[in-house]
Design a binder for these strands. Structure first.
Lengths: 201, 201
DNA sequence: TTTTGAAAAGCTAACCGTTAGTGGTACGTT
DNA sequence: AACGTACCACTAACGGTTAGCTTTTCAAAA
């Protein structure tokens, strides 16, 4: 994995990157809808089929960082300090992600996304995928011992928080407000009979 | 609006219904992906362009009841009894919707939806639309006096509850669990300084 | 009643994302 | 040096969707 990658893998990664870079540049220059896959392929000097061997769809060209995002979320849960409670750890990571998305340099990209129904739809179902991964990571933590329903619910709430804060006029205070609600929801998820202790007969 | 509709409107509605019925029947008979728009149009004895003048996309043929669903949600908020708090009213309606979707008669349709990525994506972005409508309805209630962020958040949570409960092995208890969390989140949305009274300087 | 305007429906032909199917080429390995 | 495997290219098509234009059907003015 960390061993020096062979020439083949480097070339593949380079091709992938070149396609992604070219696509994003064209999309920003001429608008997402005005650029066809055939345009991207021609400009990146590859065949149309090569584009689709690296990316599952035209929309995926824009969300190249997809898996990165997903890993950061799950790791925020699995790699947190032993004593750190779930919600603050989640909150920290999501705040970082929101800051990343609302940075000035990312503004043109997000404007493009907001203007294209296809891209919005793609991002929405991407978020749901991330919420499922997050739910799995939460459910796997033995310290929490929650029902799968509670885990899935809190995962969705967290992703909702990311999405809503990103869109808010003041992302920071919005995230504050939302995570106060999430914290309360998480506290309520512990069933009454379990509040006194974690052990069960 | 309630006046006797002219022949033109009746014919239009009939055409629309015939297309929707034909499409759903074919989809269930042969599978969603195995039926093309051209098949639907031929079987309903209309032109392809007519199908798209009534429905925005192939997926929309399956979610014909879309607007109905949306209205029920917003009305659950706006038409609730004067003293009834928001969350229980929402809960009642969503429970009814979940029951409706998990009824045996609806099972084949939802299986078809779950098996088609395109349909799932469509349903996801439909839910977001509904969450936005719901948020608007909640924000419009003068008795609640919440920030828009809190309204949007609680609306998303409620829709998440619908979606998660629908998928759960035991929808009823899942909905119980989720709405306990939502209730707590809503209580936490009232900012500390506002708990004593609604008036502000 | 006749005329007229417009909504509804139809047809053709295309555009665009996406996917076989086929074959060639460069790379890592023996 | 030879071989097998990814990787990549090309062509051609399929299926959803739309544009452009004509025809039909209804409603209401004349």
């Amino acid at each position: 994995m960390t061993a020096p990658p062979g020439r083949r893998e480097r070339k593949k990664a380079a091709t992938r990157q070149k396609i992604a870079d070219t696509a994003l540049r064209l999309f920003l220059e001429r608008g997402y809808d005005a650029v066809g896959i055939r345009d991207v392929a021609a400009e990146a000097d590859v065949a149309v089929t090569t584009v689709f061997s690296h990316f599952a769809s035209k929309e995926a060209l824009v969300f190249e960082q997809d898996e990165n995002f997903e890993q950061r979320l799950t790791r925020a849960v699995t790699d947190r300090a032993r004593e750190e409670p779930l919600i603050p750890a989640l909150r920290r990571e999501i705040q970082a992600l929101v800051r990343h998305c609302t940075a000035d340099s990312a503004a043109p990209i997000w404007r493009m996304i907001d203007e294209s129904p296809a891209l919005r739809k793609y991002e929405e179902s991407m978020r749901l995928r991330h919420a499922e991964s997050l739910a799995t990571a939460i459910a796997a933590d033995p310290d929490l011992a929650q029902t799968t329903t509670a885990c899935r619910t809190i995962a969705r709430f967290a992703i909702d928080g990311y999405s809503l804060a990103r869109e808010a006029a003041d992302p920071e205070t919005a995230l504050d407000e939302i995570f106060r609600m999430i914290e309360a929801a998480w506290a309520a998820a512990r069933r009454p009979e379990d509040v006194a202790g974690t052990a069960r007969p």
